[in-house]
Design a protein around this nucleic acid. Structure first.
Lengths: 220, 220
DNA sequence: CGTATATTCTAACGATTATTGGAATATGTC
DNA sequence: GACATATTCCAATAATCGTTAGAATATACG
C-alpha cells in the first residue's frame, strides 16, 4: 500500500469521529449523556426527538465508539465511552464559542451575563465552597447529581427549589450550576431565587467543563 | 422564541464545527495548516487534491471560522484561526486513536513501535535535549520549522539529511519528530539514519501535540 | 402464554455534500 | 495592455445523510 492510500485510511478513521459530531441532534445527545447514563426514551424526551430517530442517532454515535449501550431490563441505557468524549464535546463547543460570532451573539441574547470561569476563578470558588462562604447548588435532576457533581455542591433540582427554599441561606451568596453553558436550568433557578430575595448567581460550568479543566468531581 | 428553538440554534452552531471536521480531506488540510501558513496549491499538492477541490474544502473550513485567508501577491495563504483549532485536531485524533480499533491496528501496522509520550516523558526529553544528552531533529520542511518547533530542536529536513549526515553525532541518541503521529517523515528519517549507524529514534509528537499538552514552542 | 413497552430494523423520500470540469476573477510580469 | 498563474465561482452528477413511518424484536408483567 502506498503512502497516499495509507494516509487516506488514517484520516478516514478520524473522520468517523468528525461525522459523528457533525449533527446538532447528536451533539445534544452527547451533552445529555455527559451528565450520566440515560435510556433512549429519556434522551429522546429531553431532546424533543422521536424515539426512533433518537435511536438512529445513538446508533451512529455507537458506531463511532463515542457511546456504549447496556441492556437494563426492558430499557437500554447509553453512556459515553469515556471521559475523553465528554472533553471532546467541551472542546468543540469552546471552539464554536470562540470563533462563531453568531453563537456569541445568541449566547449574549439568552444569558444576560455570561459567567465564564477561568482556572483561578474555579479554584477560588472551590475554596469558598469548602469554607462555606458560598452555597453551591446543583439544579439538575438528582440522578445526574448522583453520577457526579462539583465538590461541596448540594443537590437542589430545579423543580424542587420552590418547596425547599427554607434550606437555603438568605445571608450568603448562592451559586447555581447545571449541565453547562447551553443549559437554562441554572438561569431559571437564579431568577426564582432572586424573586425570593436570595443572593443567587449562576456559573456557566457544568460537570463536563469542570472535568475538562482537569478538576475532580465528587460522587454519591 | 421557545426553549426548543433556542437550543436548536445553539447546537446548530456547534455542529458547524462538527461538519467542518467530518471530512477526511479537511482533517488532512487542518493538520497541514497546523504546521504553519500555506498556500492553496501547497496544501493541494501535499494532500494529493485537485487545486479546485482543495479550494472548496478550504472554503468550508473558512466558513466554519477554523481557518483564515490572506492574499500574498498572486497566492492566497491560509492559516488556522487559532491555537485552539490545532488543539481540536489533536483532540479528535486522540479520541479516534483511543476508541477506534481499526485505527489502532492500522497505526501498529505502519509504525512498528508507537512512541507515545506522556507528560513525564515530554519533560524529561526536554531536559535531556537542553543538556545535549540527546539531539532532537525536526525533519519537516524548513519553513515549518521556522513557524515553530520543539525547544532545543535543530532543523534537518528529510530530503537534506543524506547530505548533512556529518552534522550529526554518532555517539549520542538522536530523536526525530515531524508533523505528528500520522506523518511518516520521522520514520523515514530514522530508517535512513540507522542504515548509517546512528542511534536514531522517533517520537509520535509533532508541534500540535506538544502545544496541546500545554508546552511552549520555540521560534525562528 | 398473551399483552404492553422499549428499542431496533427496514424501506423510502427529500435534502445535503463531495467531486468534477469549464468559466470567471484577480494579481503579477513582460 | 496582453499573457501567465493562482484561486474562486458555477453548474451538474453521484453519493451520503436525516427524517419519517411501518414492521420486527426483545424483555417484563400478569
Amino acid at each position: 500500500m502506498n503512502k497516499r492510500q495509507t494516509k487516506d485510511l488514517l484520516y478516514e478513521q478520524v473522520s468517523r469521529i468528525g461525522k459523528a459530531v457533525s449533527s446538532p441532534k447528536r451533539l445534544e445527545l452527547l451533552e445529555l449523556l455527559a451528565q450520566g447514563e440515560k435510556t433512549v426514551d429519556a434522551v429522546a424526551a429531553e431532546a424533543s426527538l422521536d424515539i426512533r430517530l433518537a435511536s438512529a442517532h445513538l446508533k451512529v454515535l455507537k458506531e463511532a465508539r463515542l457511546v456504549e449501550a447496556r441492556r437494563e431490563g426492558r430499557f437500554i441505557a447509553y453512556r459515553l465511552s469515556g471521559d475523553d468524549v465528554s472533553a471532546l464535546w467541551v472542546n468543540l463547543r469552546t471552539v464554536a464559542e470562540e470563533h462563531l460570532v453568531e453563537l456569541k451573539v445568541e449566547m449574549e441574547r439568552i444569558f444576560a451575563a455570561p459567567e465564564k470561569l477561568d482556572a483561578e476563578t474555579r479554584r477560588s470558588l472551590l475554596e469558598k465552597a469548602r469554607r462555606g462562604d458560598v452555597v453551591v447548588i446543583d439544579v439538575r435532576p438528582s440522578a445526574e447529581y448522583e453520577t457526579g457533581h462539583l465538590p461541596f455542591a448540594r443537590s437542589m433540582p430545579l423543580d424542587e427549589i420552590r418547596q425547599r427554599l427554607k434550606e437555603l441561606p438568605a445571608d450568603r451568596d448562592i451559586v447555581a450550576y447545571c449541565r453547562g453553558p447551553f443549559c437554562m436550568m441554572s438561569a431559571e433557578a437564579v431568577e426564582l431565587l432572586r424573586e425570593h430575595g436570595f443572593r443567587a448567581h449562576k456559573i456557566a460550568d457544568g460537570t463536563p467543563e469542570w472535568q475538562a479543566a482537569g478538576l475532580p468531581l465528587a460522587e454519591s
